[in-house]
Amino acid sequence: MNARLATLVLRRVGAALCSLLFVVVAIFVLTAALPGDVADMLLGQNATPDATQALRHALHLDQPLWLRFVHWCGGMLRGDAGNSLLTGRPVSEMLAPRLYNSLLLAGATTLVAVPLALVLGLACATWRHTVFDRVMTVLTLGIVSVPAFLIATVSVFVFAVQFRVVPALSDIRSIHSVGQFFLTFAMPVATLASITMAQMIRMIRACMIDVFSAPYMEMAVIKGVPPVRIMLHHALPNAIGPVANAIALSLSSLLGGVVVIETIFNYPGLAQLMVDSVMSRDVPIIQACTLLFCMTYLFLTTLADIVALASVPKGRGA
């Protein structure tokens, strides 16, 4: 009975794996096939021909490109992303604490943003064309169309500089109590959440209004079904697919926002490490970070598609 759904899901996962392969190849080609030589760069002034040759051999740079690609992929699969060019420490060792911090920030943001955005998006759709909806539309449009750093700088200016209620930087090593935890995370989570929510609310509102225009909704209203029941029993189940998609897409925009927010608040996360590595051209770290981000992104979008597939009765084969 579920064979149809299983094929659809498998096909979707297959497509995601194809995209992943593309991403892996793109990352490798862009970073490893660079003009210029990493060995020369590493040795700097000490670059005698012998030393360069030895280092090139040690870094497998004298092998053909495809062989290096296979080695690199094998390393990634074993969780060995090589060593940082700058510090010489293993990339995985440098990444692990950062990944934990970033997941903490993203998780907290998701917990705040998703329920709030759902409620506000549904409210906007229910009371569309009222003053509340107009205000929300202008507000979300404003937030969506300005860069992330703008919201962050303005909120630092207002809450940290003018009112002095929260610290301007997120020094997570200074957390010793629950109160401090909330204060430290308040600013980055609030700014990230507002960016993510603005997009979610806009998309959720759009797809709910789409559902509301269906004939069975009019029928439900005429029957005299109470509004809350209409929302929860008639509208929402039919909107799960698009709403899940909207949430996944906005959460993936959180990935972009995280890069800016972590830098502004000096939050020791993955994205900040990546920006620093781009500045210092520390290729192995850039590769590993990009791969992690892209995998998260692919995972989220694929998950949303699967939820959407499973939520349609036709797809379930019922």
């Binding site: 194809c18 970073t31 890069v259 990009t290 892209c294 979008t301």
Partner: peptide, 22 residues
């Protein structure tokens, strides 16, 4: 279509960072 999907599957800011690094 596959090529475009591939480019789309890298978030834009990250893609820009990657290319700028290169």
């Amino acid at each position: 279509g596959r090529l475009m999907d591939g480019i789309l599957s890298i978030p834009s800011l990250l893609c820009a960072l990657l290319v700028i690094a290169a």
